[in-house]
Nucleic acid binder design. Structure first.
Lengths: 323, 323
DNA sequence: CTGAAAGCGCTTACAG
DNA sequence: CTGAAAGCGCTTACAG
C-alpha cells in the first residue's frame, strides 16, 4: 500500500526479475503458470497500476485511442447533439474523447495534442486550424477532420449551407413572403456567411422580394428584437439561422399577433413541439459519419497507407410544420 | 523534418548538450542568450515537439490538468447543459476534460484514469463508483466527485430530488388535481427513486389524492403513451420526471383537448417557450459549482492537506408557467 | 521459462 | 553558463 508501486516492487516481493513481471502483466505466453499467478497475486495485493507514461515512452502509443475534440465557445445546442453522436459512435470503437476549448486560439492546444500523442483531431465549426497547426499535426501523423466547416485541401464533413438557405428561401417564397429578414448571430462563421450569401443570392435571382439581414449578439435578445422588428407591418418573413433563435421569434410573433412566416435552421429536438418549420440537418448523421471518417483516417495511418483526404457534403432538407 | 525529432537532434545540430537544450525549452534562467535563441531557432526549424510521456515520467504530472468525466448513456438533455457549464468553468482554470463512457461499467475506465495520471474524476449520475474503484482512486490520490448523486461517505453535489418532487406535488395540489400519474424512465437511478418516493410520500401525507406511477422506456414513446393515458377521464394531473418527457405530454394534451395539469422537471431551455411549469434545477449552478468543487479538491491534494469530503445539496424551485 | 541489460526522451542535481 | 550522468518505469531482444 506504499506510495508508488512499480514493477520493481513486485519483482522484489515475488523474487523474480522485472522482465518477468512485465511479461506477466502483458500476457506474454512464455511464463510458467505458477510464476504468473504469484506475480498477479502480488500485483493485486499491492494495488499496482502501471505507469502509462513509462509504457508509452517505450511503446510509442497509448493503450487506448483518444480523439481530441476542438470546440469554439459552446453556446450551440446543435453542437451538443453533435457531440453526443460523435461520442456515441466513437465509444463503440473504444475511442475516448478529450474536449478542448479553443476560445483563445488553439495554438497551445495543438501543441498539447501532439505532446500527448493523441490519436486524431476533430474540429467543430470555426475557426479552422491555421496552416502552421495543420503542418504540425501532419508531421506527427495525427489525422484531423473538420466538422461543419469546409476547406478544399483538407478532410471535412459538413452540411451544404447554401443548399439549406435555398430551401429556407423556397419555403418563404411558397408562403408568398415579400419582405424578409434574415437573423443570425454576430459570429461570422463560415456557415453563417454561406447562409447569408446563399439566401440573398437565391432570393435576388427570383426578383421582386426584399431581403435584409441582421446580426444579433445572443439568443436571449432574439425575442425582444423580433418584437420590435414586427412593428414593421410589411415584414412577412423571418429566417433564423438557428432554431434556438427562432424560438424567441415564435414567441414574439405570438405576443404581437402578427402573421409572419418563420423558418429556422437545424431542427433540434424541441422544434417538433414548437411547430417550427426548419432546415433539418441531422446531428445524428453528421456526428456518426464524422466519427466514422475519423476512424477511417486513423486506420489509414495505422496501415501506413498514403493518407487520402476525405470529404463529405450532406444535403439538408426542409421540414414543413406550417410556421 | 525527419521522423521523430528529439532534444538529442537539436543538441547535435546546435553543438550543445541535451541538458542545455532542455533548460532552454523549460525557460530555465541560467542560459546564455545567444545559446537560447540558437536552440529555439533550431527547435522551431525541426518542428520539435516534446514527448509528453518522457516529460511526465520524470516530472510525475501532466503539464496540463485533465479531469475525467464519467457519463452513463447520454440521452439526457440536462446532462448536456451540465457538461457545458462544467466545461466552461473548468477551462477557466486551464483544466481539460476527458469524457469516458461508462456503459459497460467503469472498471477499465478507472484503471485507465490512474494509468494516465489524470487529475480528478467527475461522475455524472448513476451508477456510482464501486468500493474497489474508489479505493484505487484514493490510493493514487485522485480526487473524485459525484454529480447528481449522493453518497454520505463521499464528496458530491446534487439537487434535492425529494424537495423537488414535493414542489411538483404542491403545484398539482394547488391546481386541485385528484388523480395524478407520475411518469419516468425505466432506469432506476437514485434521482428517479427519490422523486418517486418523495412525491408519493408527500401526496399520501395530504390524503384524498390518488397517485400512481409509470415507467416508460424512452422519451419518444411518451407522446403515444400519454395519449392513451388521457382516455381515463378522471386523470387530471401529470408529473413528468424530465422536461423532455413532458414535451410529449403537452403535445398529447393538445391533441386530446383534455384539461389536465402538467408539471415537468429540470427546466431546460426550451421549456420557457413550451410554457411548461416545471421544477427548476439550474444546470449552470450545478455545473459551475461542481467544477469549483473539483478545483478545490485538487487544490487540497496539491497542498498536501488532509482531504476533506465536500458535500453540497442545492434547492430546486418551481417555475409556474400555468401548464 | 527467465534474468540482466539496453533504451525510450526527458529533467535535474552535480561538478565544473 | 554548460556538459556528463543518473534516473523516471517500463518493454523487449538477447543469452542463457
Amino acid at each position: 500500500m506504499g506510495e508508488k508501486v512499480t514493477i520493481k516492487d513486485i519483482a522484489a516481493k515475488a523474487g523474480v526479475g522485472i522482465g518477468t513481471v512485465s511479461r506477466v502483466l502483458n500476457n506474454s505466453p512464455n511464463v510458467k503458470e505458477s510464476t504468473r499467478s504469484e506475480v498477479i497475486r502480488i500485483a493485486r495485493e499491492l494495488n499496482y497500476v502501471p505507469n502509462g507514461a513509462a509504457r508509452m515512452l517505450v511503446k510509442r502509443s497509448h493503450s487506448q485511442a483518444t480523439v481530441a475534440l476542438l470546440l469554439p465557445v459552446v453556446e450551440n445546442q446543435f453542437f451538443f447533439e453533435l457531440i453526443k453522436h460523435i461520442h456515441g459512435r466513437l465509444k463503440a470503437e473504444q475511442f475516448n474523447i478529450m474536449i478542448f476549448n479553443t476560445d483563445h486560439g488553439h495554438d497551445s492546444v495543438v501543441h498539447h495534442i501532439v505532446e500527448q500523442r493523441l490519436t486524431a483531431v476533430l474540429t467543430l465549426g470555426d475557426p479552422p486550424l491555421t496552416q502552421a497547426e495543420q503542418e504540425v499535426l501532419e508531421i506527427h501523423k495525427i489525422p484531423f477532420l473538420y466538422v461543419d466547416y469546409h476547406d478544399p485541401e483538407s478532410s471535412y464533413i459538413t452540411y451544404d449551407s447554401v443548399k439549406g438557405s435555398t430551401l429556407a428561401a423556397d419555403y418563404l417564397i411558397s408562403r408568398n413572403c415579400k419582405k424578409i429578414m434574415m437573423i443570425g448571430l454576430t459570429d461570422r462563421s463560415q456557415q453563417q456567411v454561406d447562409r447569408f450569401e446563399g439566401f440573398r443570392r437565391y432570393i435576388e435571382s427570383i426578383g421582386d422580394i426584399q431581403v435584409s439581414e441582421l446580426c444579433i449578439n445572443s439568443e436571449e435578445e432574439c425575442y425582444d428584437i423580433t418584437l420590435s422588428l414586427l412593428n414593421d407591418k410589411s415584414l412577412d418573413g423571418l429566417f433564423y439561422f438557428s432554431d434556438t433563435l427562432a424560438y424567441g421569434g415564435i414567441q414574439a410573433r405570438l405576443e404581437s399577433g402578427r402573421d409572419v412566416s418563420i423558418v429556422g435552421y437545424d431542427d433540434i429536438f424541441p422544434s417538433k413541439f414548437m411547430k417550427l418549420s426548419t432546415v433539418r440537418q441531422s446531428s445524428e448523421i453528421l456526428g456518426t459519419r464524422a466519427a466514422e471518417m475519423v476512424v477511417e483516417l486513423v486506420r489509414q495511418r495505422e496501415e501506413g497507407e498514403e493518407s487520402r483526404v476525405l470529404q463529405t457534403v450532406l444535403e439538408p432538407e426542409l421540414v414543413d410544420r406550417n410556421s
